[in-house]
């Protein structure tokens, strides 16, 4: 990549795998679990966080030398809250049904620990361009997990993807259902999100032994 130096591209690639915000840093779990029963809200959530993270990291990074360190948490919260209000109003204007479905969880992006965590750990000490890349990288790492969880929960739970019946029609017994396949209704319920994330962590740590905790 000509645009990015090797060090810069590491900022984007690292959070996708070995330094994933959800499975390794354990940040931003609340929203990751609650809205992943289907693929569509998961993607909308991932895009919203991508926007808030990218812009927020740049803003904080630009202000990093003028924020008094004692009140920095409040300043950060105000910046995030403003960005989240924009996301919320846009969603309400263009996709009202989806914003109803996501209900309070768009608002909860404000207290999503990934955002505060990256502000504290990165944007306060680095320039705007690097902070932007770091924000995008972490938001992508977050989005990847969200989409994986949403994919499996919707596929196994309702037999659909984006609402399309990819496994056949359960009522008319076509496709897989003709062979006696049944949807696992349990996957749609909240507890399964936790277990799916637990399994992703298991797979990831089995592949990379260095990540195992003692």
């Amino acid at each position: 990549m000509g645009l990015l130096s090797k060090k810069d591209s590491k900022l984007i690639v690292d959070p996708l795998t070995d330094n994933n915000p959800i499975t390794i840093q354990v940040l931003g779990i609340c929203s990751a679990l609650a809205i992943t029963a289907q693929l569509k809200p998961s993607i909308v959530m991932a895009v919203s966080v991508l926007f808030v993270m990218g812009v927020g990291n740049v803003v904080i990074s630009l202000m990093r030398n003028i924020i008094p360190s004692k009140i920095r948490i409040i300043v950060q919260l105000i910046v995030v809250a403003t960005l989240v209000i924009i996301v919320d109003q846009v969603l309400k204007a263009y996709s009202y049904a989806l914003s109803k479905e996501l209900s309070v969880f768009i608002g909860l992006i404000i207290t999503n620990c990934i955002i505060m965590g990256r502000f504290e750990a990165f944007a306060l000490g680095n320039g705007p361009w690097r902070s932007f890349l770091d924000g995008i990288g972490n938001a992508l790492g977050y989005g990847v997990i969200l989409i994986i969880v949403g994919f499996f929960r919707e596929l196994l739970g309702s037999g659909t993807l984006f609402g399309f019946k990819v496994l056949g029609d359960p009522v008319e017994k076509t496709g897989l259902y003709a062979m006696g396949y049944e949807n696992n209704g349990f996957m749609v319920l909240p507890p399964m999100a936790l277990i799916v994330v637990g399994l992703i962590i298991w797979v990831q740590r089995s592949r990379n032994k260095a990540l195992i905790e003692d």
């Binding site: 936790l194 637990g198 740590r205 089995s206 032994k209 195992i212």
Partner: peptide, 11 residues
């Protein structure tokens, strides 16, 4: 081993 800590807590 791979489930220790975070993984098992989730489950």
């Amino acid at each position: 081993p791979a489930l220790r800590g975070l993984g098992i807590t989730f489950i």
